[in-house]
């Protein structure tokens, strides 16, 4: 696989996203708004809410990127891309976007919350972003339109936000691992156990699911013989 088969789709995903100024601004401000609105319930509660709300931004951007690209992706695969190359390119840019946005947001939360373990708070927020991209790409590959995609996002992240992390249902959701890390960064008595590993395993599983779905939807080859034979 030549590197530009991943880097060019990544660059174009970036250009597409960066030019959506309003959407980009809203996506960046959204977790901040959650954090600010929750401050009245205490800085620790606000940090967990704001951290998990990062999923709205990064997963939202990922869902939108996947759904916007779907009709063009078919043509690109027909032209010669493998579906996973396009997915990988999109993943590359969105992870970069997520890591940068969540780093800035972590800094704001660390300054505002002064947690006992600021590095762990940052890792927790970064982990939300890292998990959000494959989650968004999987939802984007599965959902028929933006409406269904956004409703799934609101449902999953909303439930994660409202549930106590010790509940079984919370443990089944994709952001349980980061949630435990965020809680541990604020209160060392909360055990983190395998939460980091669970989060990374969840992100990997979501990526595999997204790859499988886009592969299933990819055009089928009609070409027999050598496609490069000149006319």
């Amino acid at each position: 696989m030549r590197l530009n088969r991943v880097t060019v789709p990544a660059a174009m995903t970036g250009r597409e996203l960066v030019r959506r100024y309003v959407a980009l601004g809203l996506l960046t401000v959204l977790p901040l708004a959650f954090y600010g609105a929750s401050l009245s319930s205490g800085p620790h509660h606000a940090a967990i809410t704001g951290g998990i709300a990062m999923a709205f931004s990064v997963a939202g951007a990922s869902i939108f990127a996947a759904l916007t690209a779907r009709p063009v992706d078919q043509r690109l695969v027909l032209a010669g891309y493998h579906p996973y190359e396009l997915l990988l390119g999109r993943l590359l840019f969105l992870e970069l976007f997520g890591v940068v946005v969540s780093a800035l947001f972590s800094l704001i939360m660390v300054l505002g919350t002064e947690p006992p373990h600021p590095v762990l708070l940052g890792v927790g927020v970064e982990l939300v972003a890292v998990t959000s991209v494959p989650f968004g790409l999987a939802v984007g590959a599965l959902a028929p339109t933006e409406l269904e995609g956004v409703l799934i996002l609101i449902g999953v992240v909303g439930i994660q936000l409202t549930l106590d992390s010790t509940r079984t249902i919370a443990k089944l959701l994709p952001f349980w691992g980061p949630q435990r890390l965020l809680e541990h960064s604020l209160n060392a008595s909360v055990p983190i156990g395998l939460s980091l590993m669970v989060a990374l395993a969840y992100a990997s599983a979501l990526l595999v699911a997204a790859t499988y779905i886009v592969h299933r939807r990819a055009p089928v080859s009609r070409t027999i013989g050598n496609p490069s034979v000149p006319a």
Partner: peptide, 29 residues
């Protein structure tokens, strides 16, 4: 037999990319 070029009824384009960027996107493929 040979490469198939398909032009859909509804243009499959990225709204926020220009013509040259579309060409560039197709290049590696």
């Amino acid at each position: 037999r040979g490469r198939v070029g398909y032009c859909p009824q509804i243009p499959g384009l990225f709204d926020l990319l220009n013509a040259d960027e579309h060409l560039w996107l197709f290049a590696p493929a």
